[in-house]
Amino acid sequence: MKQLDFFYFFGSGYSYLSVMRIGNVAREAGVTVRWRPFNVRTVMGENNIALRTQHAKVRYMWRDIQRRAARHGVPFTGPPRWPTDPDLLANRVGMVAAEGGWCEDYTLASFRAWYLDGVELGSRQHLDAVLPPLGRDVDATIALADGPAAHERLVQETDAARDHGIFGAPAFVVDNETFWGDDRLEEAFAWAAGDHSLQVQPQT
């Protein structure tokens, strides 16, 4: 079965759409997904992208997300708290979850808590709400997230994203082919399935 790497960031507005949609699309395409949180702030800085200071673009982003959510049947109650997770704790817990094999469940619960319940990512309230239903002890998980292994894995995943030419979130990688943005999600899965127009064009 073909695998697609899903690179995203806890705190990325557009990543919410893909987090909520990717499971169904993957099942329909018969493709497995590897969930790979990374530090998008690092690669955005390296590419001189400063979204926080681009007020018109931020206003457009939230309206665009609202439109796309309505189009795809994704719940949307309004823009969430943003920016969020200043210490990257939610993202580092994502490293712990990825290592332990529960990253998808943690990600879905985290984005729902952030977008739909108004909980700030990386806060104690967020982790208290999200981790116990997943069978995870909050203090023990935070201790792991604060440890060197989680910090190092976040660096490694960010390096991997950079190596694929990723400059924002979400992004999808299949066989070293990179697609950026929630609006490229279906196209990425078409590539994974071998159905993309560029793949099926007759060779001349």
Rank of each mutant, 00 (worst) to 15 (best):
G100D: 08
W35L: 06
F111Q: 15
E157Y: 11
N91C: 10
N48L: 15
P83K: 03
D159F: 04
G165C: 01
G101T: 00
A129G: 13
R68A: 11
A70D: 05
A69T: 06
L121I: 15
G73Q: 09
V130D: 07
L154F: 11
D117N: 13
E28F: 08
T42W: 13
L116N: 05
V43E: 03
V96Y: 06
A161P: 04
G45S: 09
R27I: 03
G78N: 04
W102H: 10
W114E: 03
G78C: 08
V138F: 05
W82Q: 14
A98D: 13
D159H: 06
P79F: 00
G122I: 01
A160I: 05
G30M: 07
P133V: 00
R124P: 00
R27M: 08
D105F: 01
H151L: 08
R92I: 05
S110W: 05
A140M: 12
R52H: 07
M44N: 03
M95H: 07
R27F: 02
R71C: 07
R92M: 04
R67A: 14
I142W: 01
V93W: 01
H72Y: 15
G118K: 02
H126W: 02
T42E: 13
R112I: 00
L116P: 01
P132S: 08
L144S: 12
M95I: 09
T42P: 13
R81L: 10
Q125M: 07
H72R: 07
R59C: 09
A149H: 13
P86K: 06
V31R: 08
R162Y: 02
A150K: 11
T53A: 13
N48A: 14
K57S: 08
V58W: 12
G101R: 00
Q54V: 07
E120W: 11
L131G: 04
F167I: 15
W102K: 04
R92N: 04
M95P: 04
N48K: 13
A26T: 11
C103D: 07
G101Q: 00
V33I: 11
L154G: 09
A160M: 09
V33N: 02
G94V: 00
V130I: 03
D137R: 08
A98V: 14
A140Q: 13
W102I: 09
W35T: 08
V74A: 09
P75G: 03
V58Y: 05
R112N: 15
Q156P: 08
D128K: 05
P132H: 06
